[in-house]
Simulated assay, not measured.
Amino acid sequence: MNTSYLVCALAGTLVATAFGQPHQLVKKWETEALLKTPESVLFDAGARVLYVANIDGKEPWTKDGAGSIGKVGLDGKIIAAEWVKGLEAPKGMGLSKGKLYVADIDRMAVIDVAKGAIAEFIAIPGAQQLNDVTVDKTGVVYVSDMKGLKIYAIRNGKPEVFLEGFKRPNGVLAQGDDFYVLDSGALLKFSKGKQRTTVVEGMDPSTDGIEHVQGNEFIVSCWAGAVYYVKGGEKQQLLDTRTQKINSADIGYDPKGKVVYVPTFFVNTVAAYELK
């Protein structure tokens, strides 16, 4: 039995009372260490591939032109470590109508997926550290600014401030009429009228990625090396690789196959886990 499975199983037993049968993450595969500081993974259900945001370069927030988007198969084989080049330090991604929207420090890169090329850049005036991306059911693109403490909305190519007043906003998720934000260890929910409620708090403060499972259930990753299952106001730790110094940045998720894809940042891989 591998170490990851043991950690997940032990963590799950601690919250068995709150969750009934605890969830687990069972490792399926891990890519070769050929990716370049992978920060984010996005599952493309239509193309059946994973897009990986490679920061590369020396620093996560440096404009050095070293960033790229990689492409990985669902079997863990790297199709192209640098499928699309010409980025600075890419992070979160969102997919809509054949376009891949990528947060790139202070701008949004728009990639034509069919062509595998950058179609345009959308400047976001005042943005400092753009991080996670989500797209709502109407096609509006949202991106968090971790340092600027704002969430921007991009409608018809034009950005505007959507939400503000955070500690360290990162992961964002548009789900139905609700909008979710990970903010320094807490999961916040904003209703259609922007009414704010705290769903759960007390997670590692480096909260990074969020994916919807079903109903009021979510998977949350933390950059430092922790992954949680959130159900209502309860949380269960599924993975903890902090002592091994293995990061778990902005995760991707295949809802049909129930597979969580974890980018390991400095380890230069993506690991796949089946959610049990």
Rank of each mutant, 00 (worst) to 15 (best):
K36R: 11
N54A: 04
K189D: 00
V262A: 08
G148H: 09
R155M: 08
P255Y: 13
K91H: 01
S40K: 10
D64F: 13
I151V: 15
A18K: 08
E211S: 14
T269C: 13
K58M: 10
V220N: 05
I105C: 05
T264C: 10
V84G: 13
P159D: 00
T138I: 00
G92E: 08
W61T: 07
A11L: 05
I246D: 12
C222V: 00
P263L: 04
L74Q: 07
G94P: 13
A114G: 08
G165N: 04
S4A: 15
D183E: 15
A16W: 01
A226T: 06
G86C: 11
L182D: 05
G252Q: 04
E164A: 08
Q21R: 15
E32L: 15
G225N: 05
A81F: 07
D254F: 02
V135M: 09
K167T: 05
W223I: 01
V260T: 05
G126T: 01
V260A: 15
G65C: 13
M203D: 01
E82S: 14
E217S: 04
I105D: 06
E211F: 02
Y51D: 02
K137V: 01
G76W: 09
V113L: 12
T241C: 15
V52N: 09
E120K: 11
Y261H: 15
Y5N: 11
A66D: 06
I210W: 06
C8M: 02
V41L: 14
I111W: 03
V259I: 12
E217P: 00
G46H: 12
Q129R: 13
L35T: 03
A103C: 05
S191Y: 00
I151G: 03
E234F: 09
N216R: 00
D132I: 04
L6A: 15
A186V: 09
L275T: 09
S184D: 03
Q129P: 07
K71P: 01
N170Y: 01
T3H: 10
Y261P: 14
L14T: 13
G94Q: 10
Y142H: 11
T243E: 10
K258W: 08
T207E: 08
A174G: 07
G209W: 06
A114S: 14
E164G: 12
Y180E: 05
K27V: 00
A226F: 06
V262Q: 07
C222F: 01
K231N: 09
T134V: 04
I210Y: 11
V7G: 11
A174T: 01
D183G: 05
V102N: 04
H23T: 11
K137N: 01
